[in-house]
């Protein structure tokens, strides 16, 4: 089977799957089968976090540039696109009304995503060009600083609600969020496997050596940073139009840390790791909510109140016991092939 046909089939299957899930989340359900709102919300946040983790992995995991200000670019994408949809959404809705309600909101969402991605990319260039001259911890602190400044500036713009928050129309649904999560994975995967991706990895491994081999390190670092910011912006757009409400509190530096935790927990420089990390970090605090209460004498001891403490402990222990993260730099494909070879059934030539 030719490779483009294979990709096409996989693409159709994935979209069909997302479509079915999306149908199950809607009010009527999909042929009677439904998903409750809580689970639906969790799935959406997993998808958004996959976009964030995968894009951050491009600059942190593959290029080796330590950026911890991802939430800032997410905020830029969220607020810029929300400003657009709040002010022009109604006009566009009537302009595209011939496509039906779903069609119109999809078109508007895509325009919003383009706007959010471009504005976040510009913000990424403005932040990245001066600060990528710095290395290691200094770069980390400067990106963190920029993200906080972005947040405080947004907090002071009254046109986007300022401190009171911002009401946003809900154009995004799980189908679009899922599709963009898949697009992010495919794009980042293809970048990493391309010539440019090899250049990025060479910068991570040894910047001086890469430069000596003729890699324009500054250009590659800035490009990778800008692409990463653009995808963070897309995640912000989707978050804004799903959540229908924006507050700058959603983009504090703890959000950036959360994304860093996802990629380190999953394994830096592993696509699979970023996806798994996003799933684990989104689900774990929710699963810990289910912990039982214990009756000690007269008082009840609510274990679920300790869920963030337990989450922190799990994080620390994972780092002590498995410092390279769950996947290290391996991918699910490598592990599958190794496993298959072990069973004595060698697969096709790779």
């Amino acid at each position: 089977m030719s490779s483009w046909l294979k990709s096409l089939i996989i693409g159709i299957v994935v979209i069909a799957l997302l479509y079915v899930l999306n149908g199950m989340m809607s009010k009527g359900g999909f042929f009677g089968a439904g998903i409750d709102d809580y689970t639906a919300r969790l799935l959406v946040f997993i998808a958004i976090n996959i976009i964030l983790a995968t894009s951050l992995n491009l600059i942190n995991g593959f290029t080796g540039q330590f950026s911890i200000g991802h939430a800032g670019f997410m905020a830029v994408g969220a607020y810029s696109s929300a400003y657009f949809t709040v002010n022009y959404g109604k006009q566009l809705e009537s302009a595209f009304s011939f496509l039906g309600e779903t069609g119109a909101s999809s078109i508007i969402l895509i325009i919003a995503i383009v706007i959010g991605a471009i504005v976040a990319a510009i913000a990424g260039a403005i932040v990245g060009i001066p600060s990528l001259r710095l290395k290691g911890d200094y770069l980390a602190i400067v990106t963190l600083g920029f993200a906080e400044i972005i947040r405080i500036v947004i907090l002071n713009i009254d046109a986007v609600g300022g401190a009171t928050g911002y009401q946003v129309p809900g154009y995004a649904n799980f189908l679009w969020i899922g599709i963009f999560a898949v697009i992010t994975i495919v794009v980042v995967h293809n970048i990493v496997k391309s010539d440019a991706g090899r250049a990025l990895v060479s910068i991570r491994e040894d910047e001086l050596a890469a430069e000596a081999m003729g890699v324009n390190t500054t250009r590659y670092k800035v490009t990778s940073f800008v692409i990463s910011s653009a995808f963070a912006g897309i995640a912000g757009v989707l978050f804004a139009h799903y959540n229908k409400f924006l507050s700058t509190n959603d983009f504090q530096f703890i959000k950036s840390f959360e994304i860093i935790i996802m990629i380190v927990l999953g394994g830096m420089g592993s696509m699979t790791g970023a996806v798994v990390g996003a799933i684990v970090v989104t689900l774990l605090p929710e699963l810990l909510r289910q912990l039982p209460a214990i009756q000690v004498g007269a008082s009840t001891f609510q274990f679920s109140d300790l869920r963030l403490v337990i989450f922190a402990l799990i994080l620390i222990f994972t780092m002590i016991l498995r410092p390279q993260g769950i996947f290290g730099t391996a991918e699910i494909g490598n592990i599958y092939r190794r496993f298959r070879n072990k069973l004595g059934k060698p697969g096709g030539l790779e």
Partner: peptide, 27 residues
Amino acid sequence: PVRKFSRMTTLITAIGMSLFIEYLFVF
């Protein structure tokens, strides 16, 4: 225990420690 590992690992441990103390005190 994480001193000999990469900088990222130690940093995440520090963030984890920070969350641990904060939420323990909230509790």
